[in-house]
Amino acid sequence: MKIVSWNVNSVRTRLPRIEALLARHTPDLLCLQELKTGETTFPAEELAASGYHAVIHGQPGRNGVAMVARAPLADITRGFTGDPVPDQARVLSASVGTLRIVTVYVVNGQSTHSREYAVKLRWLDSFTRWLRATNQPSDPLLVVGDFNIAPDDRDVYAPDTWRGQNLCSDSERRHLKNLTTWGLIDLTRLHHPGPGPYTFWDYRQGAFHRGWGWRIDLALATAPVAERCTDVQVDRDERKPSFGEGKPSDHAPLVITEAAPTEWAPRPQPG
């Protein structure tokens, strides 16, 4: 099974690149974040022409998450109980066989002195409580998305410069650690000791070409999933301005490959 997670920074703007990515990687599931569109304007018909159907939790102009799958998804949940900002579309959950998948777009936080930063910490607390209440570490569970947190100093290009600031603060990292110590394993770190690989580069100051990156897009999994994860790669080509059609997202896709047992795989459809 191949799963791709990507903050596209506007699904309609990035549609030609999404279609090309589906053809290039042929994933079983594509998890998208920061759609910046509602459900009625999501390009579901265009993606259906590529052989994928979409499940959307959208919001006009900002936020939004989606799953684009080869086979129908089950047990779909939009949002989560206890969300402190329920008007923001940030979490979507579904099942593929017995595998539970959650795609997330965590609150950015803006700066450590802002109101948004306090909201971010409350959101992380609430999300962690919900995830723990609805799952067990022994369950096959995969949580992917843009966490807007660099887990440690290996995950930012200039750790001394950014230490203590938003995305790299101790409080954010403690909240992320509180989530992972329950029973989630960082799949990228299973295959790459670091530093990096980075997944985000600001559009400004030539950050991509200078190597000024961050690893804030994560794939976290319980042990049953981690044991079968054979590879995690960042598709850096997708971030290059010269690659593909139109301007790239400021994030690169995370490509997760698993040797999934039969009961996790999408069920074949009749006909």
Rank of each mutant, 00 (worst) to 15 (best):
S5T: 13
T13Y: 13
L15Y: 12
P16E: 06
R17C: 11
A20Q: 05
L22P: 01
D28I: 03
L35V: 07
T37D: 10
T37Q: 06
E39N: 14
T40P: 07
T40V: 14
F42N: 05
A49K: 15
A49H: 13
S50P: 05
S50R: 13
H53M: 15
V55T: 10
V55W: 08
G61F: 14
G61R: 10
R70H: 06
G79M: 06
P84E: 04
P84F: 08
P86G: 03
A89L: 12
L99A: 01
V102Q: 01
N108Y: 05
G109R: 02
Q110Y: 09
S111C: 06
H113E: 09
R115L: 12
E116S: 10
L121Y: 04
R122T: 04
L124E: 02
L124P: 01
D125T: 05
D125H: 08
S126R: 11
R129M: 05
R129E: 06
L131T: 02
P137M: 07
V144H: 04
V144L: 10
A150T: 10
D155G: 02
Y157E: 04
Q165L: 15
S169T: 05
S171L: 14
R174K: 08
H175A: 06
T180E: 04
G183A: 04
G194C: 07
W201F: 13
W212D: 04
R215T: 00
L218Y: 01
A223D: 03
E227R: 07
R228H: 06
C229Y: 11
Q233F: 13
D235I: 15
G244P: 14
G246C: 08
G246Q: 07
K247R: 14
H251W: 11
A252I: 11
P253K: 15
T257I: 13
A259Y: 13
A260E: 08
